[in-house]
Design a binder for these strands. Structure first.
Length: 407
DNA sequence: ATTCCACAGGAAACAGTGGTCC
DNA sequence: GGACCACTGTTTCCTGTGGAAT
């Protein structure tokens, strides 16, 4: 590197300034004390739950809303306050909080509930082990624990409850909603379900549905104006004075507003844009940085997903990239020949369509069902991002790197 | 109006793995 | 160490479907 270039970098560095003063307020984990535009929702939920302070069972509660609409944050805030109050009044309230998407399977959810309730710190015979128990036994142990404590009040929060029902059905929910019938000595369970999908209720057994949705609430997506306010509030906490222009905030809000009014994404966009601006030694975050951030986020997620995929998923993507019209049949043929070339045993076509639909959900491919009349019905599959990203992500793959380079 | 193609995608079964319990 | 349990990724089997061709 020549002296001139180094000199340039150093001069630029001294010219630049620190834009972010409090990085933590721009992360997903940061929950503000009070959420703007959610007062009414918070009040209703707090009212519903507050009767636990009188030792009575609050109604089960279902919260609906797109991601990033503040559902989880509102619940977490209320619960924090409720638990503090309950402690003062010496009322025994436990609030296990599980995320059904991270817990992934029905059994893991039971395990996490047991962990959060402290069951696994107690008698060995009552513990819910990481594996080895039947579902029935695990449920029984949790319910027995509550019953033995006599006056224990449990408010069970299941985040992303729709993903639980999608993958594992509603057996767990059935057991927990019916559990109160078994509590002869005064304890109880209330359920709070948080769902991203409004239609998930249709998949429930009617008994579970009526019992679970004693009370319901919908969190509407934020409007662009609301997002602007949220972002500028957050920017005041996160940035130094004059470190971000109003135009940049408005653009950020507009971009996130277009995609379901997701505040979480909007804040993430703000953070990445600020990091780009800092790296460029800019004097403030501008619109151009927001646009660059949007591109970077998209590219990074695609790249990471690709790199961590299984060999067959990668081959399927290559097959889609290399196929001419993208019909399922043609993609499968290409896929099979790529498997032969790389000496992999090909999966069935059924499994391949499943992989394609997983990729579709991740936004890596676009599919479109087209009917060609006499010539049947098929999917048109297209890659939804630049093929350069595929080449980059696969360049270190020992089996596929050479395949990814040729057209 | 009916036929028929080329699948989509649900359901169930299966194999292999990794764990606990007695 | 065998019985039992859950999970994951897969295969097998099957029913349903939109619309051009007949």
């Amino acid at each position: 590197m020549s002296d001139d270039i180094l000199e340039g970098i150093f001069t630029k560095a001294t010219a630049g300034k620190i834009l972010i003063k409090d990085r933590k307020t721009l992360t997903i984990d940061y929950v503000p004390e009070k959420l703007p535009f959610r007062d009414e929702e918070a009040r209703t939920i707090a009212q519903t739950l507050s009767i636990v302070l009188k030792g009575a069972r609050p109604s089960n509660l279902l919260l609906f809303g797109k991601p990033g609409t503040g559902k989880t944050a509102v619940i977490k805030n209320i619960i924090k306050r409720l638990q503090k109050k309950a402690k003062e009044l010496e009322i025994d309230v436990i609030v296990p909080f599980v995320n059904a998407k991270t817990a992934n399977t029905a059994y893991k959810i039971l395990y996490e509930i047991a962990e959060e309730m402290g069951i696994n710190k107690g008698e060995k015979k009552q513990q819910v082990y990481f594996t080895g128990l039947s579902m029935g036994e695990a449920t029984d142990r949790i319910l027995d624990f509550i019953q033995k404590k006599k006056k224990l009040h449990v408010i069970l929060v299941i985040d992303e409850i729709d993903s639980l029902v999608d993958k594992n059905g509603d057996d767990i929910l059935y057991n927990f909603t019916r559990a109160n019938e078994r509590m002869y000595e005064g304890g109880f369970i209330s359920l709070i379900g948080i769902s991203n999908s409004l239609t998930f209720k249709d998949k429930l057994d009617p008994r579970v549905r009526s019992s679970l949705s004693e009370e319901e609430m919908v969190f509407n997506p934020y409007t662009i104006l609301q997002l602007q306010k949220i972002l500028s509030d957050r920017a005041k906490l996160a940035f130094n004075d004059d470190a971000i222009s109003t135009a940049a905030i408005n653009l950020c809000a507009a971009m996130a507003g277009k995609e379901n009014g997701d505040a979480r994404k909007a804040i993430d966009l703000l953070r990445v844009a600020a990091e780009i601006a800092e790296r460029e030694r800019a004097s403030d975050v501008q619109e151009i940085h927001i646009r660059q951030a949007q591109e970077k986020i998209e590219k990074d997620t695609n790249y990471e997903v690709l790199r961590n995929s299984t060999t067959h998923t990668k081959i399927v993507l290559l097959a889609i990239m290399k196929s001419k019209n993208g019909n399922t049949g043609e993609v499968y043929e290409t896929y099979s020949s790529l498997c032969k070339y790389t000496e992999q045993e090909p999966l069935t076509q059924r499994r391949m369509t499943q992989i394609v639909s997983e990729l579709d959900q991740l936004g890596l491919v676009m599919t479109d069902v087209v009917s060609q009349g006499r010539y049947g019905r098929s999917q048109r599959i297209k890659i939804a991002f630049p093929s350069l990203t595929i080449r980059e992500a696969l360049k270190d793959d020992p089996i596929l790197s050479t395949l990814a380079m040729v057209d």
